[in-house]
Design a protein around this nucleic acid. Structure first.
Lengths: 348, 348
DNA sequence: CTGAAAGCGCTTACAG
DNA sequence: CTGAAAGCGCTTACAG
């Protein structure tokens, strides 16, 4: 058995044929031995496995796919090229899938229907078992002309058609948790500053904020303030808020619709000599480390658990592929509050 | 020909057999017709193509791969989960590859050798034609135990072994361009503030800065300042710089090692009442939109052209796969200066 | 010009 | 217990 390597033509990849030859069995037997299928003497099975090991045999997944009618491959289509929202999703998806032997193709499509077509065709040609379509906002669909051939599809952070399956963060719940945390720390006048009204996420976060105040029996201090997702808007609003004549009407906490707004707002407060969190506590949304950590003090913020979202989406897709029943419609997955210092006091 | 669909078993994917049946030719002929191979009457060829079209036939890429001994598939391994540097690379790679019919598997591996092994095995099983390995700093290798089977590999933003092929941004050139631009605008005392010394990129950017000053016959005003890649460091340094006793010793421009430092530095200057760019011009590095745009005034900064880097890497990998000769070693690709307002005056 | 055969690398009934 | 055969969906010499 020392001359095992003689069986494999040099430079060529080792195939199951080489293994069979080396173990002195048929290809069929080799296959069964390697896959723990069929009945045979342990001696044979082990011999085959030993040879395979020795030769560094790795079965050709495409050949297997051809017979299994299953490629153990997924496609990920996204228009979020900057990846701020999508990359964690992909990382979570990719990791969860890798553990199950499935690999994922990444298709960056911008918002160009032509590129969508191109990539969708590629995914069809490669016979992916399913598709995840990831966007950057939950109320917009990608310009996708019906994935082909009834291929299973799950949507993440994107609009999901009537009978579809989709995952998004629970914006309402995340907001509720943030505001509740603030209230638990004794804050009573919690204002909300957020992005553009036409984002569904904005409405949901506002709703969670409102719900928390209601349940605590607090009056909603003043309508939430809506603008853009930018630091600039946070900065202006910080100034505007502090311009309120009676101090008792000023907020003692601000729940922001994203971390950039929170960052700008904190800068404004600092600029005005208002102490954070002592005078005004601030909480953000996104847990975008680069902002959350750079803020002085570091920002308490809602984490959307995007990795988890990606892995859930993948697992569900696998179930669909296996023909298992999955719950239809949009699922809102829990967010997690990342507590740092801007909210004042880790606990109460 | 109206009953063409009768040839394809319902629910099943249409194969070349269905096309052949529908066109009344053999599978071999159908194949040749579709691939524009071999000789046959245009009539036959067109009939086959028409039928294929009609049936929505898409050839199974895995079956073709099996015979072509080529999967038209690439693997992308990265440890940059947050994707700040890698996502543009992937987008560029993915787009360029899609145009050539090759798809890319994304493997997010963190820095865990176990996951690297797992994903590398998956890539081998799937018989990818090549691998691109993308990192987040040019002087660190990923913990990769020799890609298997002499598979072609190209490195991006990562250390590259002796005989390897790699692509990184031209840090020296980018810095040189930035500083030259500043000098062209009349600045004479250009200081450099950057990240940790042990990053190779830091050394290269410093070198470009120095070179530009030398060529202009200007003395290097003072040693560059090295710290961390953070806003905080930029902020502190901004203060420190302005503390210099004699005004004539203070810089009239600062070239920063990244956009975060630039951002912090600008904040400090603003805080001190120093006008940007009037009193001090500032240039960053990275062109990370979220910072470059949020800065007041918007930041002039060096763009590393990461998308381009990704597409170049992919194209080169394709050449290697095709057995074409490619230039060995690390290639430093040009950066581009994104001119905004923080440098003062778009032109001279 | 067209088709039968062999083969890419595997797996899976089905015989022996 | 083991192996020959057929087949997954294609392509490519090679005959006719």
């Amino acid at each position: 058995m020392g001359k095992l390597e003689a069986y494999v033509r040099k430079g060529e990849r080792v195939t199951i044929r080489d293994v069979a030859l080396g173990a002195g069995v048929s290809v069929a037997t080799a296959s069964k031995a390697l896959n723990e299928q069929g009945r045979m003497t342990v001696e044979t099975r082990e011999r085959v496995q030993r040879v395979a090991q020795r030769l560094g045999f790795r079965p050709n997944a495409m050949a297997r796919a051809l017979v299994a009618q299953r490629s153990f491959t997924l496609g990920l289509l996204t228009n979020d090229t900057y990846g701020r929202f999508t990359l964690p999703v992909v990382a979570g998806l990719s990791a969860a899938m890798a553990d199950r032997g499935v690999s994922v193709f990444l298709c960056a499509v911008e918002d160009d229907p032509e590129r969508v077509r191109l990539n969708l065709n590629a995914m069809e040609d490669k016979r992916v078992d399913g598709l995840v379509i990831a966007g950057k906002r939950i109320d917009r669909a990608l310009p996708i002309a019906l994935p082909p051939q009834r291929m299973p599809v799950v949507y993440v952070n994107a609009a999901c058609p009537p009978q579809g399956v989709g995952f998004v963060p629970d914006d309402d719940g995340g907001a509720y948790a943030a505001v509740t945390h603030l209230l638990g720390l004794g804050r009573r006048r919690v204002t909300h500053v957020s992005g553009p009204r036409d984002f569904e996420a904005v409405g949901l976060r506002e709703q969670g904020w409102r719900r928390a105040l209601d349940e605590a029996g607090l009056p909603v201090p003043k309508a939430a303030l809506f603008g853009s997702w930018s630091e600039g808007f946070g900065y202006e609003t910080g100034h505007a808020l502090m311009r309120t004549p009676r101090a008792a009407d000023r907020p003692d906490a601000v729940f922001c619709g994203n971390d950039q707004i929170a960052r700008g707002l904190i800068d404004a407060l600092m600029h005005l000599g208002v102490r954070v969190p002592d005078d005004v506590a601030v909480v953000g949304f996104d847990n975008w480390e680069i902002f959350a950590q750079a803020t002085r003090p570091p920002l308490t913020t809602v984490d959307m658990e995007l990795k988890e979202l990606g892995s859930q989406a993948g697992l569900t897709l696998l179930d669909m592929i296996d023909g298992k029943p999955v719950t239809e419609g949009l699922q809102r997955r829990p967010c997690r509050l990342a507590v740092r210092q801007s909210c004042g006091g880790q606990a109460r």
